[in-house]
Design a protein around this nucleic acid. Sequence first.
DNA 1: TCTGGGGTCCTAGGACCC
DNA 2: TCTGGGGTCCTAGGACCC
Length: 431
Amino acid sequence: MVGLIDCDNFFCSCERVFRPDLAHKPVVVLSNNDGCVVARSREVKAMGIPDCLPYYQLMERYPNSGIVAFSSNYTLYADMSSRVMAVLRENVPDVTQYSIDEAFLDLNGMDHVDLKAWGEELCRKVERSTGMPVSLGIAPSRTLAKVASKFAKKYPGYRKCCVMATEEQRVKALQLTAAVDVWGIGRRIARRLEYYGVRTAYDFAQKNRGWVRGKFHVTGERTWQELNGDSVIDVDGLDTVAKQTIVTSRSFPGMLTELSDLRSHIANYAARCSLKLRRQNSVCHIVTAFIQSNHFREDLPQYSNSAYRSFLTPTNTTTEIVGAANAALDSIFRQGISYKRAGVMVSGITSGDAVQHDLFTYDPERSEKLRTVSAALDRVNGKMGADMVVLGIQQYRDKGADGKSVKFVNAIRRALKSPDYTTRLGAFTVG
DNA sequence: TCTGGGGTCCTAGGACCC
DNA sequence: TCTGGGGTCCTAGGACCC
């Protein structure tokens, strides 16, 4: 058996942990720049407010709803996540973190345990220790555990834990689950399934295996196997394996037209990518920069493009990655476009322990210097706060409140952000 | 005025090899 | 009148996830 434990309305619950006055009030959390609703409390979902609704439309359409909105506070969410995972690891031998708010639990060898009672107690422990409400689904496969966890969340009668152990339970649960709500079946595939008369998870599981394989390839077949109780999707070690691509991208609060501004943003994203590489002890061969105009503004000329630069000797130093990203940017920048979004991707990632040097161009002395600079950046910024020391190009100019030019790094609109309760003493004021 | 960000896996098809 | 067969590797793009 395998368990899937999932935090309830994770971002909203993080905000509520330190705002108990919001316990039964409608709460939403917004994306970067306070753009869209990315998390909704139970009360907000009950009001029929869809996910990804732009914030300004929320305000227009639900003016007196009493909804409390927060800007996203990833520092808080990351810390709350690690607290929840820590409690799980104290109580379960084999935990695989699957996302910021979910983990799979390997329950093999627990045949003698009353999983229902054990699961309920685990959920209580997590909530008692961290303030985070969680739900648990237990079933023979990960896809079924996901289905079970949705039942645990939806119906209070389960007391946070739904165990799907018998064939009867499996059939009933799948009959009550829409195909589109199954892990691995998205909107596209659901639409195609509907064409074939497949509406529920049970309809899909009842189809012939060869038919599924022919129409929906190996991924569809795997989902089919999982729904029929055969555990074939493996996520073990997912949380410890180094990433194969790393992306940092942002939308801007307004729009940008100048190359010099874009260069500063691209430099920030590239610096962030190189930091992520160093954190997982990796190096990359390829750096890609991309820029996009505002696709919502059909009245403006549209343009999006990307370009890459590669290294003969892979690297993770801030200096080299920023330089490569901006060289790529220069080759795709076009005048007369209002840019809304940009980003940097690093790929061709390999281990930093065994770097293959280029025979003809590798300069050990220069490489060592660049590595020393990056290591110093990480030490200072780790101690004094992110972006305390940056490359000059990472700063861009903007107008301050008094109309004078001010330098910023990583400006994002977060008008409604809560304090970093768990990571900054200054978040609490005394008296 | 305002419309998110960061990943993975799979397949088809082209380039190239013998 | 006629134009092989069987591989590998790479990339772009589609689909999915949270």
